[in-house]
Design a protein around this nucleic acid. Structure first.
Length: 214
DNA sequence: TTCAGGATGCGC
DNA sequence: CGCATCCTGAAA
């Protein structure tokens, strides 16, 4: 029998309008859903990084660099920015006002449903290794370059509200060692202690929530 | 630990 | 053309 998944409705456009650093933190705990003909897979976002193009040397859109690849980042918050690095597709949520090329990279998710599909796509048994990295989670969820420019408020690729994390940590971003002083910006956010975070690193700050839901 | 894979962008 | 990159899996 076909399994049915009922997530909350997708987040609305307004959710994505917040400042990029706030959005990067707010996305933690939210649910990333991808529907394909093979089935639906979804995961809880547990790790993000902010890229603020105009002044961020680590961003593809640094200094407002505008190319076919970065073009979508100029078209407003809530769009999907996917790109290929070596052999892997990476997924970002565009943020900022139209004309400001900013985005949030999704670096880790915790499987929530469609686990069998993720195992099949990754060709390995269930473990944190399934989705604990930006290139791994796109493969597990079935996110590809065909999702480039899709608005994340609707099927087949969307973000739904989840639960508020108990604690959020922040620190330096990963893999940008040749980006001048931007390499040290504390623009990486993760759910404290979650095992689907891509790399363990000392937190510069930790924020504990008091309760509530989102 | 090193290294290849291979899309994209940039500089020569 | 050569080289670097918001990465990953396999080899040594």
């Amino acid at each position: 029998m076909e399994e049915q998944f009922n997530f909350s409705s997708p987040l609305e456009k307004d959710f994505f309008q917040q400042p990029t650093l706030d959005l990067a933190a707010s996305l933690l705990g939210c649910i990333l859903v991808k529907e394909t003909e093979e089935g639906t897979a979804a995961g809880i976002i547990v790790e993000t990084e902010a890229y603020i193009g105009p002044m961020d040397q680590a961003a593809h859109s640094y200094n407002n660099r505008r190319t076919p690849r970065t073009e979508i980042m100029f078209h407003g918050a809530g769009l999907a920015y996917t790109y290929v690095m070596h052999t892997h597709t990476l997924f970002n949520v565009v943020s900022g006002k139209a004309g400001n090329p900013e985005a949030v990279l999704i670096r880790g998710v915790e499987p929530l449903s469609g686990l069998d599909l993720m195992v099949k796509r990754r060709g390995m048994p269930e473990s944190a290794n399934l989705t604990n990295g930006p290139g791994k989670l796109t493969k597990a969820l079935g996110i590809t370059m065909s999702d480039y420019g899709h608005h994340l408020t609707k099927e087949p690729l969307y973000i739904a509200p989840g639960s508020l994390p108990d604690s959020i940590s922040s620190g330096k971003r990963i893999g940008i060692d040749n980006s001048g002083e931007a390499r040290d910006y504390p623009w990486r956010f993760w759910i404290t202690g979650n095992s689907y975070v891509s790399r363990h690193q000392k937190a510069e700050k930790t924020f504990v929530n008091n309760g509530g839901s989102k």
